[in-house]
């Protein structure tokens, strides 16, 4: 059978930020050249695997690599956390997908990343910095152990506000508190970009709605093909239905129906649970270290 055996999506670097979050740098010179902020890839880690979307958190045109930052939440990502080591290869990697983030000519912007959203907001923050905008970074984590890429953001942000739920780093509070701080200090902020879990993006959109500052969010519905063919990724934006993979993933946060998105993300809850339990069970039976599976 024909497969992509002539292609090798080799993992060249891995970094573990915490026991749930890890980074993979993958060799794909052509994609490194094509990738733009806001785009994502679809990964298949092995032939029986699921196709999962992951944001391109960084790309290095010279090294010919793209970087993914992944949170182990279910079967596929837990398995990747265990198996994706330097020197191994992914079975499938397609992209860059989605419409690149529109880099407006705003002069002062806030880039908000919550948890894992910190990674995907990075390329956009950097692009704005390169275009000469004043960039305020707002990064939120549950606690200081989960914090990553502070240095990377320091290097490109004019101001950086770190928020943790327990106050173990930066200010104590949510990213919405960070946004409020920034908006109070800088009435001339023209645009906010927020990437993170849907609840967080919803809260950010609510936080900026009174002031009417344009707020872009990057949506993450469940996807299959990523090419506009299945309609699984449809989201409600204003009065219309959009396919996040080809019409997005960036949308105007003030228009997005987040409740609909959150309900739709629960679509395969039972199946996800079955897959995860089976995976944990297999690991236990094979006597594989529990650090990768104990994340519940």
């Amino acid at each position: 059978m024909t497969d992509s055996s002539n292609q090798k999506f080799l993992i060249v670097r891995r970094e573990d930020f915490s026991d749930v979050t890890f980074l993979l740098e993958i060799s794909h010179p052509m994609m490194a050249r094509a990738a733009k902020p806001g785009q994502f890839v679809i990964v298949m880690s092995h032939a029986e695997g699921e196709r999962i979307p992951l944001t391109i958190a960084d790309f290095d045109r010279e090294r010919g690599t793209i970087t993914l930052v992944i949170q182990a939440v279910g079967k596929t990502t837990l398995e990747m956390q265990r198996n994706c080591q330097v020197g191994t290869a992914l079975y499938g990697l397609a992209g860059p997908m989605g419409i690149p983030s529109h880099l407006s000519d705003a002069k002062k912007v806030v880039c908000v990343g919550g948890g894992l959203g910190v990674a995907p907001v990075y390329p956009q923050a950097r692009a704005w910095k390169e275009s000469g905008a004043y960039v305020i970074g707002v990064l939120g984590f549950r606690n200081k152990d989960l914090l990553f890429w502070e240095d990377k953001f320091r290097a490109i942000c004019d101001e950086l506000i770190i928020c943790t739920d327990d106050g173990s780093a930066g200010i104590r509070g949510f990213v919405t508190d960070g946004i409020k701080l920034a908006l109070e200090k800088h009435p001339d902020i023209e645009e906010v970009v927020a990437i993170g879990p849907p609840v967080m993006m919803k809260a950010c959109a609510e936080a900026t709605r009174p002031s009417g500052v344009k707020t872009m969010v990057s949506l993450n519905p469940i996807m299959v093909d990523g090419t506009g063919m299945c309609g699984g990724c449809r989201v409600k934006v204003g009065e219309t239905v959009k396919f996040a993979c080809v019409d997005g993933p960036d949308f105007d946060g003030h228009q997005v129906d987040f409740d609909d998105l959150m309900i739709r993300l629960r679509r395969y809850k039972e199946e996800e649970q079955v897959a995860k339990e089976r995976w944990s069970e297999t690991c236990r039976m094979r006597g594989i270290g529990s650090e990768a599976v104990s994340v519940n």
Binding site: E50, R267, E271, V274, R278
Partner: peptide, 19 residues
């Protein structure tokens, strides 16, 4: 697509779920 390409009819032996 889930059923044919992703072989979800064999779930959970393959990873793609099918409602």
């Amino acid at each position: 697509t889930r059923c044919n390409l992703m072989k979800a009819r064999d779930f959970p032996n393959v990873d793609t779920p099918l409602p």
